[in-house]
Design a protein around this nucleic acid. Structure first.
Lengths: 161, 161
DNA sequence: ATTGTGTATGTTATAACATCACAAGGTCAA
DNA sequence: TTGACCTTGTGATGTTATAACATACACAAT
């Protein structure tokens, strides 16, 4: 059984893409949000790999396909997808990645390989942080949890520095 | 007893500044690193408040004091201070903040008030994330844990949106 | 004294990331 | 048809960060 929280394993990527798109369409219908061509294409582009992409990389793809050439086009589509929960922003990289748990409610954590750029999404609510927030009276609304390191493949390749 | 992990409480700030500077000087001596005037001044500027400051805000202060006017001056000093552990970078804000646990080894977590910008540093290692990393064979080198929400004071003031 | 080495700083330029402001088109209901 | 709302197009700008190269200073080896 493939664990979908462990993104460094090989997996059936094409079915993972299809599932994500289906979920996005269904959820947009429910939310009365529009998965327009630009938005859908941006999601597809991000789904092509499990690496994070910068907004300008996405924009370059859109431009090549005639879907838009100015930064706001990419940022708007990415913003929409993030709001809908289909895409996550990786603060550490100023980049974006398709969600690998389409539809599931989550408070995601990311493991970022500094060597190959692959990003795995995990569920890792931080209980210690929640405790600290409760203790100090802080109302916790959103959390960013991002870890950088080496994925199994890059460790095997002997990457060190 | 003041808990130094709970930064939203009032505290004796001047002694907190003095302690941080002393620790920085001692640790630089130990590490044979130089706490030069620019570096020391940047640390002092960050210590003035427990809010995060952008690199360009720091630079404006340096410029006003004749200590440097070009971005690399600020970024180099900030980079040095981060390397030494005296300052943390808040990825979420693209900003920097003085460490409130000078000298202590740590894997810091931050609580960021979206209303007033105050940032509290807490110790909140994420065990679930460490478990997830271990399970997937990911070598975890560094983690970013940042929470955004409302500090007690801003909740009391009735901030909501 | 001179030369080498290492560390820090100064400066120009540019890269990379993100948003503002305003115009224009589309859909849909009143 | 009009108006409200959402989406897109586009130019300009704002913000954050680094590359690349030059200069200065301290200190040690010769």
């Amino acid at each position: 059984m493939p664990s979908d929280t462990l993104g460094f394993e090989s997996h059936d990527h094409s079915s993972c893409v299809v599932a994500a798109l289906e979920t996005a369409e269904r959820q947009c219908k429910e939310n009365k949000a529009q998965l327009t061509p630009v938005r859908r294409r941006v999601l597809e582009i991000l789904l092509e790999s499990h690496a994070a992409m910068g907004a300008y990389d996405v924009l370059a793809r859109l431009d090549a396909e005639g879907l838009g050439s100015k930064p706001p086009v990419a940022y708007r589509a990415l913003g929409f997808l993030v709001d809908q929960g289909f895409v996550h922003r990786i603060e550490r990289l100023n980049a974006f990645i398709a969600c690998t748990h389409p539809g599931a409610s989550h408070d995601p954590a990311f493991m970022i390989c500094r060597e190959c750029g692959l990003v795995a999404e995990a569920q890792a609510a931080n209980l210690a942080l929640q405790q600290a927030a409760a203790d100090s009276g802080f109302l916790l609304e959103q959390t960013v949890i991002e870890a950088e390191g080496l994925c199994p493949a890059c460790q095997a390749k002997g990457a060190t520095a």
